[in-house]
Write a protein that binds this DNA or RNA. Sequence first.
DNA 1: TACTGTTTGTGAAAACATTCACAGCGTGAG
DNA 2: CTCACGCTGTGAATGTTTTCACAAACAGTA
Lengths: 221, 221
Amino acid sequence: MARQNEGNPRTSDKTIGRLSLYRRLLNVLQGEGHRHVFSHQLAGIAGCTAAQVRRDLMAVGYSGSPIHGYEVVRLIESIREFLDAPGGQGVALVGVGNLGKAILAYFTGRRPNLRIVAAFDNDAHKVNRVIHGCHCHAMADLPQVVKKLGIRLAIITVPANAAQEVAEGLSRVGVRGLLNFAPVRLRVPPNVYVEDIDMTMSLEKVAYFARLAGAEKEGKP
Amino acid sequence: MARQNEGNPRTSDKTIGRLSLYRRLLNVLQGEGHRHVFSHQLAGIAGCTAAQVRRDLMAVGYSGSPIHGYEVVRLIESIREFLDAPGGQGVALVGVGNLGKAILAYFTGRRPNLRIVAAFDNDAHKVNRVIHGCHCHAMADLPQVVKKLGIRLAIITVPANAAQEVAEGLSRVGVRGLLNFAPVRLRVPPNVYVEDIDMTMSLEKVAYFARLAGAEKEGKP
DNA sequence: TACTGTTTGTGAAAACATTCACAGCGTGAG
DNA sequence: CTCACGCTGTGAATGTTTTCACAAACAGTA
């Protein structure tokens, strides 16, 4: 079995993100009946350059042909091998408010490799009910449930003031990756990876750059 | 009036994001009664280095004192002047599904400078109702409403297959910034800024790096 | 067979972002 | 007054990501 090159310079954050994107695009292409794809085509759909695509694909260790480009099926498979945990991973969702529910709905029936297998909330009205196909447990049961299901990933959709405590609780029971929607910077042990989705920040970025774009009347000649 | 330095190297994406973050942290500090703050303190809360904070703050053109650090109130004000449009900007939200509703709820009563002033959907059950404090219009009325309210920013929370069309429609009626939640790369005119929030991609990133962190048993000695 | 056109994979260069490190400053101690 | 301290602002160094540009590969054509 081909061990993925060992002392390699750790694949970057951004490359991983784009690989995930490429895979999704490739699935669409496959659905449309494409057998092969060139780097510049993928780049066109993904919104980046062909060189970027080729550079990213170096990480997964699958080579295309200079004549036919990349074989769609094989490339999808190679990305899957590179990105996904064998056998899939269960995900916990903590905080079943508006956003939490929306995310449950959003992820239901998507990538079967990453399934939300348990939700948690401390609102008695939600506990022990099934919401968008997912059982909602009491917060107090989090440690047992996480351990029993072997959960290593969690999505945090609790209010800002509860997020740090939740993150600590999750880290303590073996969770190694957090997708955090609370507008707070979490302090976690170094073996836990945190990805923040900060909608307020993103919206402010949009507002700033939209304003710039609008103000750019006198462009360069 | 101090014109913001003109031929300056365009302030980066990342810096803008962090400025938004600093502002939020500063608001918390202010609420806790802090009058002054040092770069290293801000860095500690924001999760970056002191040099980074100082470098970012160069963009806003407010200098701290080597003795007291930054005056919280004045710094907030300077960031506000730098980031915000004077008088605030209205935002449209297109697609009032689970996610759209959650976002309406999330942004209601936050930054008064960025308010969602109109929602759009083509589900007759939602049209002409007020959802989380926001009037929902029919998609067909989008051009008129956007023009009448002078909206230049929009949040896209429609299904993937409708997103491109919606983005084009918005671009056509003067919207200059899009916050896109649909898992699609939008093709828009170059004077429209797009920021993507791709939850699937983020979750896959978390899964990948969490797995790496877990596998790192034999660290370096 | 030889030549053409197109694409991959990848060193090298460029662009961009972060961190280092220090001059300069103002305060408080002596 | 003089000194020492701790912080800011920023030039320079370092690190990271993206882009350039070209050798190598090979199908098609004649």
